[in-house]
């Protein structure tokens, strides 16, 4: 092997190594592989309160990720939060009376949407709205309610 061959082999190895590292960062260490595929359908849901739900938050059914939140908006007519989510194309059979609720992963974890399928025979499709929703629990409100109840128990009127 002459000098040029060694040099060029070295450069080739360097480029391969660099691209492999980039590939690994994308595939193994980030969500590139599971990134929202184009073949999905979007559904909306209105909530009284979404707590700390963020765009890109997971949408789960039975604990399995079936989609992600793609948009959050405020509906000024109905004074509700409107959440748009994209469901993966391979999950087609969510009944129209599916319930969407906002849960927290763990005690301090991020918010996610949990879908609870109902019993209708018709399925959600692109653009449909989930009517049965359950808002996020806001800690201050829960605590406030609790304290209020306690106080009422102790001093009825």
């Amino acid at each position: 092997m002459n000098k040029t061959t060694i040099l060029e082999t070295g450069v080739g190895l360097f480029v391969v190594l660099g691209l492999a590292a980039l590939f690994m960062l994308a595939m193994k260490m980030s969500n590139f592989a599971t990134y929202s595929s184009k073949d999905g359908y979007t559904v909306t849901a209105r909530f009284e309160e979404i707590g700390g739900l963020k765009v890109q938050a997971p949408v789960n059914a039975g604990g399995v990720r079936v989609g992600r939140v793609t948009g959050i908006d405020y509906d000024e007519k109905r004074y509700q939060a409107k959440v748009t989510m994209q469901i993966d194309g391979r999950y087609k059979a969510f009944p129209t009376d599916t319930t969407a609720a906002i849960y927290t992963a763990g005690l301090l974890g991020e918010k996610y949407i949990g879908l609870e399928p109902g019993g209708e025979t018709e399925y959600l499709k692109n653009g449909s709205e989930i009517r049965l929703t359950q808002s996020a629990l806001v800690m201050e409100r829960v605590l406030g309610q609790f304290l209020f109840n306690k106080a009422q128990e102790k001093f009825p009127n």
Binding site: L25, K28, M29, S30, N31, F32, A33
Partner: peptide
């Protein structure tokens, strides 16, 4: 270790911005 990493790291926001 790996699944939390995949859940937290966004390839566009994090990896691409790093690049």
């Amino acid at each position: 270790f790996w699944s939390q990493m995949q859940a937290q790291i966004d390839w566009r926001d994090d990896v691409l911005n790093g690049v």
